[in-house]
Design a protein around this nucleic acid. Sequence first.
DNA 1: ATTTAATTATATCAATTTGGTATAGTTAAA
DNA 2: TTTAACTATACCAAATTGATATAATTAAAT
Lengths: 138, 138
Amino acid sequence: MHITQETDYAVRIVYCLAKSEARRDARGISEEMCVTLRFSLKILGKLVQSGIVASYKGNKGGYELSRSPKDITLKDVITAVEGEYKLSRCIGADGAGECNRGASGCCAFQKIFTDISSNINKQLEGVNFADIIQNEKT
Amino acid sequence: MHITQETDYAVRIVYCLAKSEARRDARGISEEMCVTLRFSLKILGKLVQSGIVASYKGNKGGYELSRSPKDITLKDVITAVEGEYKLSRCIGADGAGECNRGASGCCAFQKIFTDISSNINKQLEGVNFADIIQNEKT
DNA sequence: ATTTAATTATATCAATTTGGTATAGTTAAA
DNA sequence: TTTAACTATACCAAATTGATATAATTAAAT
């Protein structure tokens, strides 16, 4: 019932890129965020795949955010690393049922779990990286 | 970023006891909730230890809720099985810092993670088992 | 007292997830 | 052509999770 270490690192990496406002290579990011280079590379790969980060190969290559920090939310990063959030396995990512308890393929908790998941998702969507940087300054 | 299978079972077990309004033995509960007897016993042990459920040994023994369903929330059950909820390991259960990033032992995310954790906790505290049973009937 | 039907404590174990590493290959600027 | 980057794939070990086993304890009923 918490984000994984890997996701925590991912949040810090995105934060680092957001603050840098420049292309950064994996080595620099990993040193600044105190995450091993190889693990950073793995996480950066996931962030690239999900479209949050753009990568540039070759000499002078590196990583940049692919859109403005204000358009990247905590939910985006969590989803990129862990997949779609849901409270219980018994519900699908879209809120539809996945468990088969009860004759109707439905159970007492599907709606409740779905509602809570959706509220938590809204929470996570409400925090973007421009805000995070802004808040830090105050 | 979701509740474990064990917690999901625990929620169903508490729900079962809440609906029964009578002393139930582990075998009956486990059959009704489709959880193996032994695993049910383990979960019931945690619920007893946390004070949600009362146990009675010996012949005609079994389990009952130790207080009214309306006074048992989803958060109570999740905490009983998984321990206190927090979004990231980098914050303590009380919201105090546990990580040591940054010179001051503080980091850009401690406040944000703490705020979100506390909101999610409020969500989970807002759902009690009397409501769950009530909702099901409509 | 004895039997029986229950819980309890402790220990163990296998499967899954998580955290982290290694290697070989690809790309593009200089 | 060299070099400094990223990429894809695979692998492995530690931690967590899900589940089981055994032996002991308890209390009602006979």
